[in-house]
Amino acid sequence: RDEDEKEKIKEALKRGNEDKAKEIAKRANVSPEEYERLRKEAE
């Protein structure tokens, strides 16, 4: 379940949809550090 959320965040970031990614991260309680890591992976 947690991994699904992280995949959704990465997908949103790949599409350049940072607002959606942040919204998912907030809902999934993803830490800022984890969010940054996902953002780097998505580049």
Rank of each mutant, 00 (worst) to 15 (best):
11 E>V: 07
5 E>V: 15
24 I>H: 04
3 E>A: 10
14 K>F: 06
6 K>W: 15
12 A>F: 12
16 G>D: 03
39 R>C: 05
29 N>E: 09
14 K>Y: 06
6 K>Q: 08
6 K>L: 15
10 K>F: 06
39 R>F: 07
33 E>A: 10
26 K>N: 10
41 E>P: 02
10 K>M: 07
23 E>V: 05
27 R>L: 15
31 S>M: 06
13 L>H: 02
20 K>G: 08
34 E>I: 05
22 K>C: 05
14 K>M: 11
28 A>G: 08
38 L>H: 01
32 P>T: 10
25 A>R: 02
35 Y>H: 01
1 R>T: 15
37 R>V: 09
27 R>C: 07
40 K>N: 10
8 K>I: 06
22 K>D: 04
34 E>C: 00
21 A>Q: 00
37 R>W: 08
43 E>H: 11
19 D>G: 11
33 E>L: 08
30 V>W: 04
7 E>I: 13
18 E>Q: 08
20 K>T: 11
36 E>S: 04
36 E>T: 04
1 R>Q: 13
40 K>S: 12
31 S>E: 06
38 L>M: 06
17 N>Y: 10
4 D>Q: 12
5 E>Q: 12
10 K>A: 03
24 I>V: 05
40 K>A: 14
29 N>C: 04
16 G>K: 05
15 R>P: 01
35 Y>W: 08
22 K>Y: 07
23 E>S: 06
35 Y>T: 01
23 E>G: 04
26 K>L: 15
8 K>S: 10
28 A>D: 04
35 Y>K: 00
34 E>H: 03
27 R>Y: 11
17 N>S: 06
9 I>M: 03
43 E>V: 11
5 E>K: 07
34 E>G: 02
29 N>K: 08
13 L>Q: 01
30 V>C: 04
6 K>R: 15
19 D>P: 09
31 S>H: 06
38 L>Q: 01
38 L>D: 00
28 A>W: 10
21 A>K: 00
32 P>I: 11
43 E>N: 10
35 Y>P: 00
33 E>R: 05
42 A>K: 02
5 E>N: 10
2 D>Y: 15
36 E>P: 00
38 L>E: 01
9 I>K: 00
41 E>K: 03
23 E>W: 06
37 R>H: 08
36 E>F: 04
5 E>F: 15
27 R>Q: 13
37 R>D: 08
5 E>Y: 15
13 L>T: 01
9 I>E: 00
10 K>H: 02
18 E>D: 08
26 K>V: 10
4 D>F: 09
43 E>G: 08
5 E>R: 06
26 K>R: 11
27 R>N: 14
43 E>W: 13
28 A>R: 03
24 I>D: 03
3 E>Y: 11
11 E>D: 12
32 P>W: 13
11 E>M: 09
2 D>K: 09
2 D>L: 15
17 N>H: 13
9 I>L: 07
23 E>R: 06
18 E>S: 09
29 N>G: 15
1 R>I: 14
12 A>T: 03
7 E>N: 12
37 R>Q: 12
26 K>S: 09
11 E>Q: 11
13 L>R: 00
23 E>P: 00
13 L>G: 00
23 E>Q: 08
32 P>S: 10
20 K>S: 09
21 A>G: 02
16 G>N: 05
24 I>K: 01
5 E>D: 13
2 D>Q: 12
29 N>I: 01
21 A>T: 00
32 P>E: 13
1 R>H: 14
38 L>W: 05
10 K>P: 00
26 K>W: 08
30 V>D: 00
15 R>E: 15
8 K>W: 09
7 E>G: 10
29 N>L: 05
38 L>K: 01
6 K>N: 09
32 P>V: 11
40 K>H: 11
33 E>I: 07
18 E>F: 14
37 R>P: 01
1 R>P: 14
42 A>V: 15
20 K>L: 15
11 E>F: 05
17 N>Q: 15
30 V>N: 01
1 R>S: 14
39 R>P: 01
26 K>H: 11
36 E>Q: 06
36 E>H: 05
22 K>H: 07
32 P>C: 08
20 K>E: 15
12 A>Y: 13
29 N>V: 02
41 E>G: 03
37 R>G: 06
23 E>I: 06
6 K>P: 04
36 E>R: 04
41 E>I: 06
38 L>S: 00
4 D>N: 11
17 N>E: 15
41 E>Q: 09
42 A>R: 02
33 E>W: 07
15 R>L: 14
37 R>M: 10
22 K>G: 04
37 R>I: 11
23 E>H: 05
41 E>H: 03
9 I>V: 06
15 R>T: 12
8 K>M: 14
21 A>L: 01
7 E>D: 11
37 R>T: 09
36 E>L: 06
2 D>P: 13
7 E>F: 13
41 E>D: 07
28 A>P: 02
6 K>S: 09
35 Y>L: 08
15 R>I: 11
25 A>L: 02
21 A>V: 01
3 E>I: 08
40 K>F: 11
29 N>Y: 03
12 A>E: 13
39 R>E: 06
3 E>K: 10
32 P>R: 10
18 E>Y: 15
26 K>T: 10
11 E>K: 07
36 E>Y: 04
31 S>W: 03
11 E>I: 09
14 K>T: 05
7 E>R: 14
41 E>T: 04
32 P>D: 14
31 S>C: 04
31 S>I: 03
42 A>Q: 05
10 K>W: 04
15 R>H: 14
5 E>C: 06
40 K>T: 11
39 R>S: 08
19 D>K: 14
27 R>E: 12
9 I>A: 01
17 N>V: 03
19 D>N: 11
11 E>T: 08
4 D>M: 11
13 L>A: 00
41 E>W: 05
27 R>A: 14
5 E>P: 15
31 S>Y: 04
31 S>A: 08
29 N>A: 06
30 V>K: 02
30 V>M: 12
19 D>W: 11
28 A>V: 08
22 K>T: 06
36 E>A: 07
42 A>S: 07
2 D>T: 11
13 L>N: 00
39 R>Q: 08
17 N>G: 03
39 R>D: 02
